[in-house]
Amino acid sequence: MSQNPAGEAAARPTPGPAVESVTPDYTAADRFASWKARWGIGRLGCRIKPGLYALGTPSAASRVFASANYRLSFDALRRNLKGLDAWLLVLDTKGINVWCAAGKGAFGTLELTRSILGTGLEKLVSHRNITLPQLGAPGVSAHRVKAYTGFSVTYGPARAEDIPEFLRLGATTPEMRGVRFGIMERLVLAPVQLVIFGKYLVPASLLLYFSGLKADAALTAGALLAGGLVLPALLPWLPGRSFSVKGALAGLAVTAVLAPFLGLDAYQLAARAPICAAAASFIAMDFTGASTYTSLSGVKKEMRAALPAQALSLLAGLAMLALKRFL
C-alpha cells in the first residue's frame, strides 16, 4: 500500500457499514464452489451480494473495478488484484457472468448508473473513473454513463488475469482484448453441455442397455460424447464452419470407432449412423452458445439448414430400422 501524506489520511473515508471487506485469497471452499458452478450444481448459490466492496484498505484515490454478481466473475477479479487496494463495485446481474449479462443488458448502462449512484461512490473516491471488464462493453454505453454519473469508463482487459499487466501499462494491448477460445477454454465448458443433454441421453442409454440393446446403448452414449466432448475438444480441426456439420462428422467418427465392438452387420450399422450423426449434430449446434465467436445471424442461417437435415437424417435411420424389422 502506498504511503498517504498526513493531510490526506485524515480526509480518507472510513468504509461505512455498507462497504464489506473482501480478500484476494482463493481458498479450497472457493475452488469447490467454482467446480460446482462448472457442473451446473446449485448455480443459484453462485450469487455474490451486489454492492460496494473494499479490497485491502482502499483510499479515495484507489481504483474502482466493476464486476458481475456471479461468483466466477467476482473471484476472477479479486484474485487478480493481489496486493492492491481497490474498490470493487458488484452490479446486480442476477448471478449471471459479465459477458452473458452484458448481452442481455443486465450488466448495462442503467445498472451501472444505479449502482454508482446507489452506493454513494462519488463520496468515497476523489477521482471520477471506473474500470470495467472489456466483456461488459456490449451492455454498457460509456458516454451515457459519463453523462448520467460523471464517471468515465475505462475498459480493462477481457480476462481478469491480464489485469496486473494492464495496470502496469496503463492500457490494454490487442492481445488483452481478444477472447481466447483455446482447448482449455473449450473443455471447461464441456461439462455443462454434457449435463444438459445427459439428462435425457444417459437414462435413454441405460434403458436401452437393460432392454438388451447394448449396441444402441453404446451409440446413444457415443452421440452424447461426440457432440458434448469431441466437438469442444476438436473444434478447430473438425471440417466445416458450421457446428452442426462438425458435430455430424464427430458423430460419424464415433460410430466408426465403436463399430468393431457393436457386433452389427453393415445394414444395421448404416441405419444407426445417420441417427447418431443427427443427435451429435444437434448437441454440437448447442455449443454455438458456449463459443466465443458465433453471431446470431450466423446461427440462424446455420439452423435453417441444419434442423431439417438433422430431422431427415434421423427419419432416414429410423425408416431403415423399421424396414428391416417389418418387411
Partner: peptide, 12 residues
Amino acid sequence: VTKGVGCAQAVI
C-alpha cells in the same frame, strides 16, 4: 449492428 447472442438454444 443488430445485436444478438449466437446461441442455438436461444434461437429455439
